[in-house]
Structures are given as structure tokens and as C-alpha cells.
């Protein structure tokens, strides 16, 4: 049975299917397994980052630092591998730890000092971007064996293939769905997004959860950065500029309410796929340029935000009298 709360996600999935069908009818060669898989290959890092973003937005916050964190991860990885001579097995855990700590620190500032998440993560965005340039202002190309292997490996099944990054992204997706729906951390995140005050009065660990949410987002950004490094095989301070917007857009299009409390990790997956399919459609179309992606995403974002607003206004009216009396 399709429940009302699943409606936005269902709409997103339907939209994805519709767009994919549209492409299939119009362009030869569009309707193939490999095109579908390429969506994953090209957007694995975005998926990972957007999953972290989903948790943050569900908790009622926002994380603008993700794009910079991805860039910082590519930069640290490249610097440590190429100039520091670290082995890959040491670099990856290190950058993941840095990302998590970075996120946790932002979460702590947000929670304990009640500074708007927007402004704290904005500072985080500046900081991470700036740190990239402290390492180097130029592109550092990576020729580490493990990284090039990861970039070139094709995991085949039948005639089709995916990259190892896709596997990583899908594992993160599965884990995140589990965390969101089957753990106390996940449910507390939803509770805080629904009403932080209530969560507090219900005796839930608000402080710990909020910090962990930003830590998780930091971790996802770093992991997204690692996957992005596999994809680009370089570290550069201008990598992933504006990625935070793509991640937010994918999350919102995936049905997550920007005011917090409502959203599904799977919806975000669908949102990322829509993002990918728009890009692919534009490539297949041939004459349209890539900036159309941004415009279409903007239009979708607008549509979804207005829908959300209508959705919440309706429920506001339902419970409005209670708040009035309070």
C-alpha cells in the first residue's frame, strides 16, 4: 500500500522513470543498461555526499561545507600520496577521519553555541577551500597504483560494468537506509527535525545526535572526496565547486523537507539519478549545453519547494490551533 508520507518519494521515482523513458523514445542508444549504470558511475560521489546531506537536512540543518570538503579530501589525498609518500591504505582512513572530525566540530559549534547551521558550515566551506590552497594552488596529479587501479577497474557483469566507486556508493546507500530507519541514532535525527524542543523533553540525546549528524555528513563528504579522487585522479582546490548546491538540490528533489523531519535516503538516491538523467539527456540531445542542467535543476527545485510548502501549510492548518493556544 502506498502511504501518503511516501508520496513525494514516489513522485520523484516516477519522474525519474518518466525522464528515462522520454530519453529512450527520443534517442537511439539511450535505453540501455549501460546508460543507466553510467548514471551511477558519474554520480557516485554526488550520491555519497547527498546521503550525508540528507541526514543533516532531516535533522533540520544544512551543510554548505560538503563541496569544499570534497576538494580538501582530493587535495589531502594527492598531497599525502604524491608529496608525502604515504601509502593508500593510510591516506584513506586519515582523510575520512579528518572529514568526520571537521563535521563534528561544526556540529558542536552549531549545537552548543546556537549559531545558525548555515553560517557555521559557511565558515567550514571557506576554511576547507582555503586549506586546499595551503597545500597547493595547483593541480596535483595522482599516479599511485591503488588509485589508478580504482579508476580503471571495471566490475563486469554480462556486457555491462560499473566502477568500484559505484559499489562503495551503493554500500553507503544501503547502510544509510539501515541507519535512518533501524537505529536509534537515525530515529532521533528524525525526531530532532520534527521538533527539537519535543525531542529534548522526550529525553532524547539531542546534543550527541546533532553532532553525530554533522560528523556523518563530514564523513560522507570525505568518502565522496575519496571516490571523486578515484574519478579525477588529481587533487585540486577548485574541484567540486558548487557541489553543495547539487547535493541540496538532489536531496530536496528526493522528497526531503528542507524544514526537517521528513525525508528518505532512498528518495535522495532517486534525486541523484534524476540529476544524472538530466545531464545524460542533455548530452544525448547534443545541441543543448550543460548549463541547462542547472536551469532544469533550479526549476525542479522550485517546483518541489513550492509543493513542500503547500504540503506543510496544509498540516500547519491542522495543528495550527494548538500552536495558537500555546
Amino acid at each position: 500500500m502506498l502511504k501518503r508520507q511516501h508520496l513525494p518519494v514516489a513522485a520523484t521515482i516516477a519522474l525519474f522513470v518518466l525522464m528515462f523513458m522520454m530519453g529512450s523514445f527520443r534517442y537511439t542508444g539511450f535505453f540501455s543498461m549501460q546508460v543507466l549504470l553510467n548514471l551511477l558511475i558519474d554520480n557516485a560521489f554526488l550520491l555519497i555526499v547527498a546521503i550525508g546531506m540528507t541526514f543533516v537536512i532531516v535533522s533540520g540543518g544544512i551543510d554548505l561545507s560538503v563541496g569544499s570538503m570534497v576538494a580538501l579530501t582530493t587535495m589531502m589525498s594527492a598531497g599525502l600520496l604524491q608529496q608525502g609518500g604515504w601509502p593508500a591504505w593510510a591516506v584513506i582512513p586519515f582523510v575520512l577521519a579528518v572529514g568526520s572530525l571537521f563535521g563534528a566540530a561544526m556540529g558542536a559549534l552549531i549545537h552548543y553555541f546556537k549559531i545558525q547551521p548555515f553560517i557555521v558550515t559557511l565558515a567550514g566551506m571557506f576554511l576547507a577551500r582555503g586549506l586546499c590552497y595551503v597545500i597547493s594552488i595547483n593541480t596535483i596529479t595522482i599516479n599511485n597504483g591503488f588509485y589508478t587501479d580504482m579508476a580503471q577497474t571495471k566490475i563486469r557483469f554480462g556486457d555491462n560494468f560499473v566502477s568500484p566507486s559505484v559499489i562503495i556508493a551503493l554500500v553507503v546507500l544501503a547502510l544509510a537506509i539501515y541507519i535512518a530507519h533501524y537505529t536509534r541514532f537515525g530515529r532521533t535525527t528524525y525526531a530532532i527535525g520534527g521538533s527539537e524542543q519535543s525531542a529534548l523533553l522526550m529525553g532524547l540525546p539531542v546534543a550527541r545526535t546533532k553532532i553525530m549528524v554533522y560528523m556523518f555528513s563530514g564523513f560522507c563528504s570525505a568518502l565522496g572526496g575519496v571516490v571523486f579522487t578515484f574519478y579525477m585522479l588529481s587533487g585540486y582546490g577548485l574541484h567540486a565547486v558548487g557541489l553543495e548546491l547539487d547535493a541540496i538540490a538532489a536531496t530536496v528533489i528526493g522528497g526531503t523537507l528542507l524544514t526537517g523531519g521528513v525525508g528518505y535516503v532512498f528518495g535522495t538516491f532517486a534525486g541523484v539519478m534524476i540529476y544524472g538523467v538530466i545531464q545524460t539527456l542533455i548530452v544525448f540531445q547534443g545541441t543543448l549545453s550543460s548549463w541547462w542542467t542547472r536551469i532544469i535543476i533550479g526549476v525542479l527545485l522550485f517546483a518541489f519547494i513550492v509543493l513542500q510548502r503547500l504540503f506543510t501549510m496544509r498540516s500547519d492548518r491542522k495543528t495550527g490551533s494548538v500552536e495558537k493556544m500555546a
Binding site: 530515529r187 528524525y190 525526531a191 520534527g194 521538533s195 519535543s198 523531519g261 521528513v262 498540516s315 493556544m325
Partner: peptide, 8 residues
């Protein structure tokens, strides 16, 4: 003012 989470 019911102190529960309406979204859960």
C-alpha cells in the same frame, strides 16, 4: 502544546 514529534 503536545510535545511529541508530528513527523514520527
Amino acid at each position: 502544546e503536545v510535545n511529541l514529534c508530528p513527523n514520527l
